[in-house]
Design a protein around this nucleic acid. Structure first.
Lengths: 218, 218
DNA sequence: GGACGACCCGGACACTTTGTCCAGGAACGA
DNA sequence: TCGTTCCTGGACAAAGTGTCCGGGTCGTCC
C-alpha cells in the first residue's frame, strides 16, 4: 500500500497533454449527444480516462492493463471510473466507436471516388493502423501471434458484409466474410508485428492480390 | 469456504472417467520422457488437471476458468497445481502439444497418400475440430467473434510455413502464411460458432476454393 | 514385503484486483 | 451567487493468485 498521494503521481496526464493529442479516439467523442449540453467535467474525465487507456495498452498490452492503472495514470479516482464505464471492456468498446466512424467514413469516400474498387476499406485501414501502431498492437494482442482483435474484427466484418450483400446465399456470404476478415486481420497484425516496414500501399496490393487472385501464382 | 471434504465433491472427476475419455490431450502425454520412469501419481494428477481444464473451458470459456475451478473439479489440491504448471497459460500450452502432434501426423499422412494436395492440413483440422467442438470453442474464444486462438494459431502457422518453404522471399512468404492462417482460423471459428452444421468436407472445399481461386468468382 | 523417499493435501499467508458505497469538497450552469 | 451535479478519497467485502510448510499417503526399489 503506502499510497503516498500528492500533487502529481508518476506519469499522470494533465489536461493539456490530452488536449493536444490526436489519436484513435479524438474528436468524434460525444457525437451522439448535443456537445454543448454535456458537463465539462464529464467530458474531461472521460477524455483523461480514454487517453490513459490508450497510452497504457501500448506498452503493457490490453490484458495487462488494470483499471487501477488507468485511473492512476489518468489522475482520476477509481470510484469515478465506474460512474462512466462498467469495466475495461466497456471502455475499450466505446473507444473503438471512433475507429468505426473514421473507417466507414473512409470507406464511403473511397467508394464514391473510385466506384469500381471493391473492399476499399483495406488501404485506409492499413494507413490508419500505421498511424497508430502502438494502439493497434496493444488492442490487437500481438503477444506471440495471438489475435484477440477486441472489437476491431467486428468493425471490419461489418464493412465487408455490407459490400458483399446480395451475393449468393446467406451461408455462403458469411463464409466469405469470415474468410476476408480473418485474412485481413492476420496480414494486418503480422505487418504491425514486424514494425510496419512495408508501405501501406504495398502491403495493400499484396493483400488484395492474394485475396482476389488466389494463393497459387506469385 | 466451508470446505467440507469427503469422498467426493460436486463434480469431481475420478480416475475411470479420465481413463476412458479420448480427447484433445489423450495419449501422447509423456512422449518425451521414458513413460515407464515417471511416477504414476504425477501422471494421474496431470491427467486429472488437464481433463478438468478440458471440460471447464467448454462451458465457461478459457478466460472465465480459474485455477481454483480446475483444482476443485479435478479433486486436486491447489498447491499441487503449482508443482506441475506455472499457471493457466502453461496448462493450456501443454495441452495443445497433443493437438500439434495429432495434426502434424495427419498432415504427413495426407501428403504421402496424396502428394499433389497442398495445405492438406485443413480437412484434418476441420474434422478434428468438429470432434471436439466444445474444447475448440472454449479455447478459441467464440465470445462474439473474437479469435484469441491461444496457441492453435501458431500450430497451424507452422504447418503452413513448412509447406510454403522455398517460395519467394522470406517477407512475401510470411505474408502468405499470415493470410492463409488468418483466413483459415476465421472460417473455422465461424463454422464452429454456427454449430458446425456443414460437413467438414464441404466447408473444406469452400475454404480451399476461396483460398486458391480467389474471391471474385463464385 | 518393508523402508525410504517422492508426492499430494490442506490450510495459512500476503498480495492484487475488482466493484460498491458514502461523505464532503469542488466545479459547473444558469 | 446558488443549487445541482460531479469528483474524490477512503473503506469494504469478495475473489483470485502464488508461495510455503507440516504431516499423511502412496509408489518405487531393494
Amino acid at each position: 500500500m503506502t499510497s503516498r498521494r500528492g500533487a502529481h503521481r508518476i506519469h499522470e496526464i494533465n489536461a493539456e497533454d490530452v488536449e493536444r493529442h490526436a489519436s484513435l479516439h479524438p474528436h468524434v467523442l460525444e457525437a451522439d449527444v448535443p456537445a454543448s449540453k454535456i458537463d465539462r467535467r464529464i467530458a474531461r474525465t472521460r477524455r483523461k480516462l480514454e487517453h490513459a487507456f490508450f497510452h497504457l495498452i501500448q506498452d503493457k498490452g490490453y490484458d495487462a492493463v488494470t483499471i487501477q492503472d488507468i485511473c492512476e495514470k489518468a489522475g482520476v479516482g477509481r470510484s469515478t471510473f465506474y460512474t462512466h464505464f462498467t469495466g475495461k471492456d466497456d471502455l475499450k468498446r466505446r473507444s473503438l466507436e471512433h475507429l468505426r466512424a473514421e473507417l466507414s467514413a473512409y470507406q464511403t469516400m473511397a467508394s464514391t471516388t473510385d466506384p469500381g474498387k471493391a473492399l476499399s476499406f483495406s488501404l485506409g485501414m492499413f494507413e490508419h493502423a500505421r498511424r497508430h501502431v502502438g494502439a493497434y498492437r496493444g488492442l490487437i494482442g500481438s503477444e506471440g501471434l495471438a489475435v484477440s482483435l477486441g472489437g476491431i474484427r467486428g468493425i471490419i466484418a461489418d464493412l465487408i458484409r455490407a459490400e458483399l450483400a446480395g451475393q449468393g446465399d446467406r451461408q455462403d456470404r458469411e463464409i466469405r466474410v469470415a474468410f476476408v476478415v480473418g485474412a485481413f486481420m492476420s496480414v494486418l497484425t503480422n505487418w504491425l508485428d514486424n514494425g510496419a516496414k512495408i508501405e501501406p500501399a504495398d502491403i495493400d496490393v499484396r493483400f488484395r492480390s492474394l485475396l482476389f487472385g488466389g494463393l497459387s501464382p506469385g
